[in-house]
Design a protein around this nucleic acid. Structure first.
Length: 641
DNA sequence: AGCATCAGGT
């Protein structure tokens, strides 16, 4: 039979390749339709009274239970049904049956904390839970809001009890729970146990494992599960693996696999496309993103809420904020995430007015913002020096009863620091109700760079090394700070400390997309096949920069080497290599788009301005924080970043 | 009774 199935698959793959029309898209999954089956049972069952319940045969009672539970579409309805069943005073066994049906229905509902606790209370009332009951409870506990991985603990309890023994459903649900947290270690234990119990071959266990590893960004592990799966991998396996690559930022791999998937005759759906689009977003690969969007249209893939949101994010992160706006405006239904994506996108582009305008429209339409929305709002203020507005939005957030997350505090600190309000930032940090994270301390440290505030520098660096003793950024930052104040002994001490703690510097990395392929560069990177040609362009840039009267800002180079060497190091910064490659490979009206993993080097920022004027090229660079758009010698950030 | 997707400050 396997042979036959495989043949069928390869035939359909051929049909697909021959350009046959794509099969009609399936309808998006909806909630179970209301009581389709209720009419099957006589109306009298809905009005069952306790005396009758005692006389009816068990199979009829069970049918009644099934129909009652099936009608429930919310937790509230389930509780109501539960109450009605209680009043019937069902025989013990039938009641246990009813409880397990309620539990299963609860597990299938939206995975909220309320559903989880109700499921647990149902489970606790079942005297001898079957594997079905365990499975349902594990499934209901699989919410990201369960940091202790209750689901996994229940699974262990089941194993310890010895009976009932877990089946493939148990492992699949437990894996989903681990993936939701995500909890890699626990997931790996499940993997080996599933193997021992012979449950590994189940396709649901396999995709569960694959997805767990993909969510944990354990790409190699995910890939080994993926490769170990049968020839005819299903859509879920492909989507999950592509999602894993995408999350890990391995864009080329994600897109290669997307191509392999089509070659294997599997048609992607809207879920697959969300991962593919967000891979493009992460990479800032505009051409690829545009191509994938066209693909979605061509194949008639439904652009639902999630895919629209992913498209907004992609266009925003690829520097086409206008297109992001078009997608947003075309949406028929927008949730908080869609609004947030748009607001964050505008903020990233320094378009504070639009971002804040959109936010007030969101409020008018009674869409409830959340803390992520406020990240967008506050960062819009921060990027434009709107301190007073930022403070006002901060209190708006409080008034709306939205609990500030660490990220929100981070935005506020950033806002105050950028506006030079170091004292206010410092007292804001020290009066936070939660312990500030490393990001906040780092921000404070950067802000006090030229302030002579040894108290702040001292505290912030102490906290930083406590929180992140292994983060190279901290060493570089502090070393830089000391170098700025010519405290060379301290600079040397930092370098020694770095060596002693086995910390190595993270290289800046910039990428540019040429002809659909992503080219990556790191500082002084000689590995590119066209490096000779690139160096010629770099020399020409250096000449033009010199003629424009710009003096290389060598303070951006950390090492205490000679001035000349510093200038050379600057010229080989990753962003400059990428821009040079863009100049080499493309012609005038084409926009040079570069993505950098760290912040823009100040000297390279100046140089980019000069290039945009001297070569008459538009350059858009996405750095770790925001977009910079260079036209005719100036940047859209107005040098405020 | 299951498996895959969306927004994030430094």
């Amino acid at each position: 039979p396997h042979h036959v199935i495989n043949r069928r698959h390869s035939l359909s793959a051929q049909a697909h390749h021959a350009g046959a029309p794509a099969p009609p898209r399936r309808e998006k999954k909806r909630e179970t339709p209301l009581a389709l089956r209720a009419s099957v049972f006589p109306r009298m069952h809905h009005q069952l009274k306790p005396p009758e319940a005692a006389t009816l045969p068990r199979h009829l009672l069970e049918a009644h239970v099934v129909s009652l539970v099936r009608q429930c579409r919310s937790l509230r309805a389930l509780r109501g049904a539960h109450a009605r069943l209680l009043r019937l005073r069902l025989p013990r066994l039938t009641y246990a049956f009813a409880l397990s049906k309620l539990l299963a229905s609860c597990a299938a509902s939206a995975p909220t904390a309320a559903a989880a606790s109700y499921a647990r209370s149902l489970f606790d009332q079942i005297p001898e839970p079957t594997a079905f009951c365990y499975n349902s409870l594990i499934r209901a506990l699989a919410t990201p809001s369960n940091p202790t991985t209750d689901a996994f603990l229940l699974y262990r309890r089941m194993l310890r009890a010895g009976s009932p023994s877990p089946n493939s459903f148990t492992v699949a649900f437990a894996l989903k729970a681990c993936a939701a947290v995500p909890a890699l270690g626990k997931g790996r234990q499940l993997h080996s146990q599933a193997f021992r119990q012979g449950l590994e071959p189940s396709p649901y266990v396999q995709t569960g494992l694959l997805n767990l590893y993909a969510r944990c960004e354990e790409v190699a592990l995910a890939r080994s599960v993926f490769d170990g799966m049968a020839e005819d991998k299903n859509l879920v396996a492909w989507s999950s693996m592509i999602g894993g690559y995408s999350r890990a930022g391995m864009v080329n791999e994600a897109l290669d696999l997307f191509r392999d998937m089509q070659a294997a005759g599997v048609s992607p759906d809207e879920v697959t496309m969300v991962s593919v689009i967000s891979a493009c977003a992460k990479a800032g690969a505009l051409d690829l993103g545009r191509w994938v969007h066209a693909f979605i249209d061509r194949k008639g893939i439904m652009v639902d809420l999630e895919l629209s949101t992913a498209l907004i994010d992609m266009y925003a992160k690829c520097g086409l904020i206008e297109r992001a706006r078009l997608v947003f405006d075309a949406m028929v239904e927008r949730d908080t995430k869609a609004w947030s994506a748009m607001i964050v996108g505008l903020a990233m582009h320094g378009l504070a007015e639009d971002a804040l305008g959109l936010f007030s429209r969101m409020l008018q339409l009674k869409i409830r913002p959340n803390n992520v929305t406020f990240i967008g709002v506050l960062s819009a203020c921060a990027h434009n020096g709107l301190v007073d507005d930022g403070r006002r939005y901060w209190s708006t957030m409080q008034e709306m009863g939205i609990k500030a997350s660490m990220e929100n505090y981070g935005c506020m600190v950033d806002l105050l620091c950028r506006s030079g309000l170091l004292d206010e930032a410092y007292s804001f940090v020290t009066s936070m109700p939660i312990l500030p994270n490393s990001v906040i301390w780092r921000n404070l440290l950067v802000a006090s760079k030229s302030s002579n505030r040894t108290d702040i520098v001292g505290l912030a660096s102490k906290k930083l090394f406590e929180l992140e003793p292994q983060n190279p950024e901290n060493y570089v930052l502090l070393s830089n700070l000391y170098a700025l104040n010519s405290q060379w002994d301290r600079v040397r001490y930092m370098r020694k400390k770095m060596k002693d703690n086995n910390v190595t510097v993270v290289a800046g990395c910039s990428s540019i997309e040429i002809n659909g392929y992503l080219h990556k560069f790191v500082v002084s990177d000689g590995s590119h096949p066209e490096i000779k040609e690139i160096r010629v362009v770099l020399r020409e840039i250096a000449d033009r920069v010199l003629r424009s009267g710009h003096k290389p800002w060598t303070a951006a180079v950390l090492h205490d080497v000679g001035e000349e060497e510093k200038e050379i190091a600057l010229c080989e910064h990753s962003e400059r290599l990428a821009i040079a490659y863009g100049l080499l490979k493309t012609k005038a009206p084409h926009v040079i788009r570069v993505v950098k993993n760290l912040r823009f080097c100040p000297d390279c920022h100046e140089v980019a301005k000069i290039i945009s004027k001297s070569y008459g090229r538009e350059i858009i660079v996405r750095d770790r924080v925001r977009f910079h758009r260079f036209i005719g010698g100036s940047c859209s950030c107005n040098d405020f970043w």
